[in-house]
Design a binder for these strands. Structure first.
Lengths: 257, 257
DNA sequence: TCTACAAAGCCACATAAAGTCACATTAAAG
DNA sequence: CTTTAATGTGACTTTATGTGGCTTTGTAGA
C-alpha cells in the first residue's frame, strides 16, 4: 500500500479548488484517506504560498470573491472623481461607448441622472445600472462573459462593436507600461478595447493612479486619435507616468500624489 | 458527513441577491437546509460588511431596487418548482438557451450548482448569476436593453441568436391566449422568442399558472417542434388552460389549483 | 384607528463539529 | 539502524449552528 505523495495531494487539492471554487477539510480527508489534521496542514501550507485562503471548514480560491466588487471599493473616491470628470464631456444627445471595469463603472454612476443618451457597453453591471434609469437608451454588446470582469468579450462582441459608430468612447486599461502605453491582461481584451476606441470619434482612457504601477502583458493597439487620459494622479518618479505624460494629453482630476 | 462551507452559503446569498434584488430568510433557510437563525446571522454578518441591508423577513441589495424583483417574489415557490423541473432536463455538456423572465431566472438559480454547461441568454441577471459560478460558460446575447425585463432585444439579438445552435431552449411568455397560444407584449419580443425556440433541437416554454389568466397582444409564432410547456398548475375552468392542454404536451410540477 | 395573532427577530444557552498544539508513531532514505 | 519528514492521536479551545423562551413587527379584521 503506497501512500500517495504529499505533492500529488497538494496538486489535486488545487485542482479540486479550481473546479469547485471551494473544498472542505472533511471531504478531502475522506478522499485521500488521511486525517483531517493532515489536510489542515496541507491547506495551511498552500495558504502561506498564497494559492488559496483557508476558511472555517475548508478553503476557497482567492480569485473568487474579490472580483469586481472588491476592486470597486479600491480607491473609490479617485475613481468617482474620474467618473464625474468624464461625465462632463458627455453632451445630451450623444451616443457613447463605455468599456468594462471599475473606473468606467464610476462614469456610468455619474451618468445615472442624465437623459437623452445612448450608451453602448460590454459590461453587465454598467448595462443594468443605466438601463434602470429608463432615461438612457442602453445597448449591451454581447459575447462570452468573463466572470472576473463581469463583461462580454469575444468574436460576437467584436462583431457588434463594428456595427456602431459613437461620439465618444471611454476605455479602461489593465495597466500602463514604462513606455506609457496602455496594457491589458489578454490579447483579446486588448484588441477589443482598441476596436472600441476606433469606433468613436474621440476616445478617452480612464485609469486611476494605481494603474501606473501595474504591468500587464499585452499592449493595447490603440489608434492615434485618442483624445486623452483621465486620471486622479500622476505618481512622481514613476517612469510609466512620465512616459504617458509625453505620449498622451492627460487630464488630472482630484488630487493624488 | 461534511457540512457545506459557510462561506459558500454567503457567496450564494449574495448571488441570489444580485439576481433577485431581495431574498427572504425562510427561503434561504429552506434552500440551504439550515435554521432561520443561522441565515439571520449570515445576513447580519454580510450587512456589517456593507454588502446588503437587512429588512424584516430578509435582505435586499443596497443600490436600486429593480422592477424585476417584485415579479420574482410573486409566486416564487411555483416558479422555483418549475425551475427545478426544467433543470432536470439539462444534461452535462449541453448547450442551452435561456430566455429572460422571472420564471426562467428560477431555472438559472436551479443550475447554479452545475458545471460543464454552456448557457446563452439575453437576460442580464441570468448572465451575471451564471457567469459568477465560473463553472458554467455563459454567452450574453447582446442588443438594446429593455429596462423592465433587464434583458436585450432587437436586431443585434436576433443576429446573435441566428449564429448559435443549442440543445435546449427555455422560453418565457407574457401570457396565454384563449386558443392556447403563447403571447407577448410586443411584436419584437414575440419574434425573438420564436427565433430562440427555433435555434434549439427542443424548446420548452416555462410559464407559471398565473399566465393562463393573462392576455398580451402578440402571439408568439413558435414553430411546431416545441417539446412542451412546464407549469405549476392548470387553473380549472380557465379556457386558456384547456386550450393549451390540447395544443401542447404539458408537464405540471408542484401543486396549484 | 385599534386590536389580535402569526411571523420574524433577538438572546442565552447547549452541542457538535472544526481548529490548535504537543507529542507519539510510522515510513522512507541514508 | 539511525535519522528525518510526514502523519496520526488525544486533550483542549474555538466556532458554527440549533433550540427554546421571550419580544417585536407586520397585517388583517373589527
Amino acid at each position: 500500500m503506497s501512500r500517495p505523495l504529499a505533492v500529488d495531494r497538494h496538486g489535486q487539492i488545487l485542482q479540486a479548488l479550481e473546479a469547485q471554487g471551494s473544498v472542505s477539510v472533511s471531504d478531502l480527508a475522506e478522499r485521500f484517506n488521511v486525517s483531517m489534521e493532515t489536510i489542515r496542514r496541507d491547506l495551511k501550507l498552500l495558504a502561506e504560498e498564497g494559492r488559496l485562503v483557508t476558511v472555517h471548514g475548508g478553503a476557497h480560491r482567492l480569485s473568487n470573491e474579490p472580483s469586481l466588487s472588491r476592486r470597486t471599493i479600491e480607491n473609490a473616491e479617485g475613481k468617482a472623481a474620474i467618473g464625474r470628470a468624464a461625465a462632463e464631456l458627455v453632451e445630451d444627445g450623444m451616443a457613447i461607448l463605455i468599456d468594462s471595469g471599475s473606473t468606467t463603472l464610476a462614469l456610468a454612476q455619474a451618468l445615472t441622472n442624465r437623459s437623452d443618451l445612448t450608451v453602448l457597453t460590454n459590461s453587465l453591471p454598467i448595462g443594468l445600472l443605466l438601463a434602470r434609469t429608463k432615461t438612457i437608451k442602453t445597448v449591451l454588446l454581447g459575447g462570452e462573459i468573463e466572470p472576473n470582469d463581469e463583461a462580454a468579450f469575444g468574436l460576437d462582441t467584436l462583431d457588434l462593436i463594428a456595427k456602431y459608430r459613437v461620439d465618444l468612447a471611454f476605455i479602461g486599461a489593465g495597466g500602463i507600461s514604462e513606455t506609457g502605453e496602455f496594457t491589458d491582461f489578454t490579447r483579446l481584451a486588448a484588441e477589443q478595447r482598441a476596436r472600441m476606441a476606433a469606433a468613436a470619434k474621440a476616445a478617452y482612457v480612464l485609469a486611476d493612479h494605481t494603474k501606473f504601477s501595474k504591468r500587464t502583458p499585452v499592449p493595447i493597439p490603440i489608434a492615434p486619435p485618442i483624445a486623452g487620459l483621465i486620471t486622479d494622479g500622476l505618481p512622481k518618479g514613476e517612469p510609466a507616468a512620465e512616459a504617458a505624460a509625453r505620449l498622451w494629453p492627460i487630464r488630472v482630476v482630484g488630487s493624488k500624489p
